[in-house]
Amino acid sequence: MQPDHPDELWNEAAGHALLGAALPSEPIITFEEDGGGLRRVEFGSGTWGIAWVDGGRAVTYGFDLDYSTARRRLPPVDLLAGAPGWFPWDYVHAAQKEIQLVSWVHWWDGETWARAEYPGDMDGVPDSGGEESFEGYADGSEDPDAARDAYDDLMAAVAARAVDTAVIEALYAPLEEALQPPDLTAPVAEVLDLARRLGVTPGASRPELAAGTGEPAVRRVHIMDLEQVEGAIAKAMRNSFELDRPAPSADPDEVAAWVRANLGETSIEVAYTGTDRPGHNYKLGIGWGKMADAELSALLDAWREREADPERGRWTHARVAVTADGFTADRAYDHLPVWWDGFRVHLTGLRAEMASRASRWRPSWTGLLDQDLAHEGVPLELTWRPGERFQSLAG
């Protein structure tokens, strides 16, 4: 899905910015200046922004609250991957920080739109709020037909870069008497000044951001949901490996017996969570909120502690496969094994486990547990890349 031509996006944003500035008390979907571009005022369902960049280029970004497809993707997605050197990095980074939920970013090179590759069904483009803005304006008018004419004339003047005093004054004529300013001089002058800044009056220039000078040497990717911190750390764990450990010292006989008696011949995968709730220290598989039975949890605790070493620590993930002839057991101490299929990890349990070990038995990704990734963002290597698997937690 491609955005409309940037001229169309800018004209829509600028026209509604002028309408909102003319009637600030009316329920109009409007736009505000945001440091070089225009951004729709968020009213509960989403927002988008657009800015021109030196050289006839442009960038647009935004999200739709109901269809924010980048949310709850694990690992987090780098929306700026592959952006060209002229891309306005600081401007878009600031928008991501302020808005938090930016789910798509597109850049226009003067001829075509492009964006990073996204996983699955991720996508998004600016949505038109034109009719809603008109309805908010027309609700305060005595003559809807006259309001339509004034609105259409405004949008046509914006497209032609021909906004003038008469176009703005005409916006007030259809309004109910209570909504008309006693003196139009000041409000019209204020709106006309905004029109000049937006480049839609005769002879005025549109605002332009300076072109970027290349991708920042050190760049982190914005986090939208706390689960994405787990996803980033999970990617680091998947890229890690097991340290050179002695063979396990105990078999999970009681665990296998419980599985055979209660679940039959099957395989269970569990992750240590570190919860304070007695008997619920383990998550069963990657199903959302699926905790191990309290009795099973106690057996897992006993097995895990029997194998514990004061320096090397304990396993974080385990798998027990029960067959007619017996069982097999796998443990993971230092990485996320291939048989753990998702990208959710339990940070409380991981922090407690790593803190209990001697430093030489802490894998390389341990330092991530102490970083404020939700605020600082995650390193590029911990984000999703084309061809990699991902997990979507979107409902």
Rank of each mutant, 00 (worst) to 15 (best):
Q2V: 14
D4C: 03
A14T: 04
G15N: 10
A17D: 10
L18K: 08
L19G: 11
G20H: 10
A21I: 04
P24Y: 13
S25F: 02
I28V: 12
I29E: 11
F31C: 06
E32F: 03
L38A: 05
R39E: 10
F43Q: 15
S45F: 06
W48K: 00
G49E: 12
G49S: 07
G56D: 08
R57L: 02
Y61Q: 03
Y61A: 02
G62Q: 14
L65V: 14
L65A: 11
A70I: 00
P75R: 08
A81F: 05
P84V: 06
G85Q: 14
W86A: 06
P88D: 03
V92S: 02
V92I: 13
A94D: 15
A94H: 09
A95T: 00
S103G: 10
W108A: 03
E111K: 02
E111C: 01
A116F: 01
P119T: 05
M122I: 08
M122H: 03
G130H: 12
E131A: 11
E135W: 11
A147Q: 11
D149E: 15
D149Y: 02
A150G: 10
D152N: 12
V158P: 09
T165G: 06
A166C: 01
E169N: 07
A173V: 09
P174V: 08
L175S: 02
P181N: 05
D183V: 09
D183C: 09
V188T: 14
A189S: 15
L194Y: 13
L198M: 12
P202K: 00
G203N: 07
S205M: 02
P207S: 05
L209I: 05
A210N: 13
G212T: 02
G212H: 07
G214P: 05
A217C: 00
V218Y: 01
E227I: 14
E227M: 11
V229N: 04
E230L: 00
G231C: 00
I233W: 02
F241I: 01
P248D: 15
S249A: 14
D251L: 15
P252G: 12
D253I: 13
D253K: 13
W258F: 13
R260C: 03
L263C: 10
I268H: 01
V270C: 12
A271P: 09
T273I: 06
T275L: 12
D276S: 01
G279W: 01
H280G: 00
K283A: 12
I286K: 03
I286C: 10
W288S: 07
G289H: 09
M291V: 05
E295S: 08
D301P: 03
A302Q: 14
W303L: 03
E305W: 15
R306P: 10
R306F: 11
R312D: 09
H317S: 10
A318R: 13
V320M: 06
T328Y: 11
D330R: 14
Y333E: 15
Y333Q: 08
L336T: 04
V338Y: 01
W339Y: 13
D341C: 01
L350M: 13
A352I: 06
A352Q: 15
S356V: 03
R357D: 02
R362P: 04
P363H: 09
G367Y: 06
L369V: 11
Q371K: 07
A374S: 11
V378K: 04
W384A: 00
G387T: 05
E388H: 05
A394P: 00
